[in-house]
Every structure is written in C-alpha cells, then in structure tokens.
C-alpha cells in the first residue's frame, strides 16, 4: 500500500510539474508575441544575456567545437571506412552529426554554463525579495526577467549550434581528405546530396525549442525559492534535473518527427 501511495504521489507530482511548466510556457509565449514586452529595459537585459551566454564563451566554445568535431568526425569516418560503408559518410555526417549531435552537444554546453546560472540568479533574487521590489515598481517579471532570457536561449542555441555544425563540416572536409583521400569537389557534392532543407529546418527548430526550455525551466524552478537561503541549492538542483529530462524528451520527440 505504501509503495503504491508513493508511486501515485510521484506520478501526480510529475504530471503537476509538467502541467505547470506548460501553463508557464503558454504565458511566456504570449508575452514573447506581445510587442509591449520589448521595452528598452528588456532589450538591455537581452543584450547582457547574449553577451554572457554566447559572446563571452565564444573562444572556448569554438575551441571545444574543433576538438569535439574532430573527434566525432574522425571516429565516425574511420568506423565507416572499416565497415566498408564509406559511401554513406555524407548521410552520417549530415543526418547524425550535424542535425542530431551538434544541437545536443551545444545544448549541453549551454545548459552547463547558463541554465545553472539563471536558476541560481532567479532563486537568489526571489530569496532576497528583489522580485517583490521589481513588482512594487510595477515591472512585469515575465517581461523583464523571462522574455529576454528565453529569447537569448533560443537565439544563442541556434547561432552556436550552427557554428558548431559549420566547424564540424570544416573538420569533415579535412578528415575526409586524410581518411578517404577525398577531394573538395567530391566532399561538397556528397554533402549537397546528403543535405535536405527539411532536416536543417527541423534541426534549427529543435535548437530553438532546446533554447526555450533550457532557460524556461531554470527560471521556473528559481521562482520556487523561498526566503530561506537553503532553498536556493535545492531549487537549482531540481531545476537542472528537469532541464536534462526536458533535453531527453525533446531529443526523442525530434527523432519521432524524423520517423514520420
């Protein structure tokens, strides 16, 4: 009985959590589409957020991209050559590495750097009653805190993931010449044949969805903090767990969309 009760509680908690997240998402999307949300203060926050999320980490991100890309492409190309499946390397490069692994690695990097920071920042603001202060000055929390962070998440994800993909393809060019002794023309032709705009579109949409949720969930969990400072690490921890769950769910959903 006790086990069943615990299971029921967990299920109800998960469903409630999902429901709350979707309700909050709806509210945020409505504000995203509202022109009044884009006042000067929101725009300033957006610039700051993009700066901290993308510009400040750009050199490290590009260095990591080169390392990851070389490793991934090298391993995959070598495996294809060993298995005698060299003719499929274009499809593997575009279908697996560029449209699947590239957004996934980017979202993991952004989650580790920005999502945790956003979660902690909002939790501290809530704990210090700074959010109350903003409300007393009639500043809409969704407009001022959520909208710029969400836009930054989506934009940064799309831009950084695209950069990662471009670095990947450049690595592919180099490694295909080394491993397959392939010329630039042949490599380009294979890439062109293996690429479809629908796949790119799906990948970009997926990046945007990743960006939306890896910022929305930390904000939502940050807002759950109480006056007690001890609530901050708890909310950060729960928020990050939920962010990773969301990443997995989005990945599965994107795979399903490719199947149909």
């Amino acid at each position: 009985m006790h086990g069943l009760e615990s299971t029921g509680k967990v299920i109800i908690s998960v469903v409630d959590n999902l429901h709350d997240t979707l309700i909050f998402s709806g509210k945020v999307v409505r504000r995203l589409l509202h022109p009044a949300a884009y006042n000067r203060a929101t725009r300033n926050v957006l610039v700051n957020q993009i700066y901290f999320t993308s510009v400040q980490i750009l050199p490290v991100f590009l260095a990591l991209s080169v390392v990851f890309a070389s490793l991934l492409v090298g391993i995959v190309f070598q495996s294809l050559k060993t298995l005698g499946l060299a003719e499929y390397f274009g499809h593997v490069l575009m279908g697996l590495i560029v449209t699947e692994l590239s957004p996934l690695l980017t979202v993991l990097l952004i989650t580790l750097r920005s999502s945790s920071a956003i979660n902690a920042e909002i939790a501290v603001m809530k704990s210090n009653r700074e959010l109350t202060a903003l409300e007393m000055f009639r500043i809409d929390l969704v407009d001022y805190l959520v909208v710029p962070r969400i836009i930054n998440g989506m934009l940064s994800m799309v831009l950084l993931s695209s950069l990662f993909s471009i670095v990947l393809m450049a690595s592919g060019l180099l490694l295909s010449a080394l491993i397959f002794d392939m010329s630039v023309d042949v490599y380009t032709n294979i890439l062109l044949n293996s690429t479809s705009f629908s796949a790119i579109f799906i990948a970009l949409v997926k990046c945007a969805v990743y960006g939306f949720f890896v910022t929305l969930i930390p904000i939502r969990f940050g807002l759950r903090a109480t006056r007690e400072l001890t609530s901050i690490p708890i909310t950060v921890s729960r928020g990050m767990v939920n962010v990773f769950a969301a990443i997995l769910i989005i990945e599965v959903l994107s795979l399903l969309t490719r199947l149909f």
Partner: peptide, 28 residues
C-alpha cells in the same frame, strides 16, 4: 561596448548561416 560585441557576434554568425544556406540552396 558590450552592445557592439553582441551585435557583431549576432550579425557575423547570422551572415555565416545565411551564406551557408544560400550556398546549399545554389548547390542543390
């Protein structure tokens, strides 16, 4: 300024993406 850096990053990256997509479109 921070604004300039952000603007430069967004513009350059968007341009790279746009050029890549245009090249892809022309190639296809």
């Amino acid at each position: 300024s921070r604004e300039f850096k952000v603007g430069l990053f967004v513009a350059c990256t968007a341009a790279i993406i746009a050029v890549s997509l245009a090249a892809l479109a022309m190639g296809k």
